[in-house]
Write a protein that binds this DNA or RNA. Structure first.
Lengths: 241, 241
DNA sequence: CCGACCAATTTGGTCGGACCAAATAGTACT
DNA sequence: AGTACTATTTGGTCCGACCAAATTGGTCGG
């Protein structure tokens, strides 16, 4: 499950998940480095490297005398990915909040990109939208094109803050949903309308329109995703019986 | 300048700033741990803890054989704070992007909070807005109240994703601007209008109105901040002569 | 002259033991 | 019971050592 094969990373992941699972109360003393070293059968150095990562994530605060656990919602954004894949099924509330937040950022990006694009970039965007329209039969199969489109949008909009946020958010999310077999079922007509709105907004250089289209798309995605997760949850319950 | 008194943190800060200042090209080899230890006159262990923090920030990628520098805009959001206080004067473009992004998130928060607030919370919000109105003479002096208001909004909206983003963004920003003596001069009439719009939106339970008010406020803040930074820049140039 | 292959070196990853200073816990004293 | 003091725990740092992977540099063959 864990990726980076180094011991210190494994320890960090393990402890991170324990904290995210609320197995420690906020403010509680964290086990000592020597205890952790014994528990993981590793050297203190490896444990210290792991703890230094947790500290960077804002999950613990270390001091001579003992480390203390910090409340999860005072942590860094980088914990969101791990937070989403804690359990078999991602927390639906969190997923919804993710989509809502990512939606407004995507809308902002679309607005700025369409408004700021030069002639060449507009042509490029038009091409991409045409490609998207061709594949609009299935939300999943158009993923690669869709990502490319968003990437170009983001490059044109050129907002480092949004890009940094996206780095911590986007990466794992879609992949994980697919891996879990959660497929939001957005109506084909909705997708077609969305893409056609994108096309119009690009043709008319209308950033506000692009933004609005993006927003409604994410709204539809939210409800579809919510249903998809609910469906998956009942599947799992059935399996358990 | 640097906060945490431990050597490993000082090394991490130092190297972080060097990377953020683009003193290494993306993909370039990073100095070896042994070299860094010699340069900082520290042990390899301390250097390794520092590097493990940089890796968590997404600034470097380590591998047996050598660590490599990663491009800044593939880093974690947590680098934004340091990025803003790299130089005497924060990068105006970055500040503007920050305000634009934070603005849409604040608008989202306001919308959801006003829509979701129960009777008690609405009363609480009304009180806070009244307090804000009383102090609306000066943007700076109303900061404590303003922060409290945003905090309550954020608690009512209860969106963990936005909160995590804010953790990495908000904290240092306002403080740093004040410390540098950068005071955006938003017209008093604009502030008054903003607050009155907030009041109305709360009274009418109209989240969309609150969102729109927040958006225009941040728009005004952006232009004011841009002017303020420009002013400060010319001041500094004058001092240098 | 160039490319492929192989050995020497560099580099990160880990370990163990050791010392210091700060913070905590425990104890004795008032 | 409250306080002052001491012993212990804990994090922070250093050193030296070993392994395995990656890089480097040279050699050989075309």
């Amino acid at each position: 499950m864990s990726s980076s094969n180094t011991i210190s990373h494994e320890i960090a992941e393990s402890l991170r998940d324990e904290i995210l699972r609320q197995q420690y109360r906020s403010g509680e003393r964290f086990p000592s480095e020597r205890d952790l070293a014994a528990r993981f059968d590793a050297s203190r150095g490896a444990v210290r490297e792991a703890l230094s990562q947790l500290e960077q994530l804002g999950l613990i605060r270390t001091q001579p005398g003992g480390a203390r656990v910090q409340s999860v919602d005072s942590a860094s954004l980088a914990v969101l990915g791990p937070l989403l894949q804690l359990d078999d099924l991602p927390n639906p509330v969190l997923v919804d909040q993710f989509l809502e937040t990512f939606g407004v950022l995507a809308a902002l990006t679309a607005k700025n990109a369409v408004n700021a694009a030069n002639a060449d970039q507009l042509i490029q965007l038009k091409k991409l939208v045409v490609l998207l329209a061709d594949e609009s039969v299935d939300l999943e199969s158009m993923q690669p094109r869709w990502r490319e489109f968003m990437k170009i949008l983001s490059e044109i909009a050129d907002n480092l803050v949004v890009r940094l946020i996206s780095n911590d958010l986007k990466a794992q999310f879609v992949d994980q949903m697919m891996r879990l077999g959660i497929r939001p079922d957005v109506k084909r007509s909705s997708i077609k309308r969305f893409i056609s709105l994108l096309r119009v907004s690009i043709n008319k250089n209308d950033g506000e329109l692009a933004s609005a289209a993006m927003l409604t798309h994410f709204e539809e995605l939210r409800t579809a995703m919510s249903e998809a997760i609910g469906l998956k949850a009942s599947e799992i319950r059935k399996m358990a019986v």
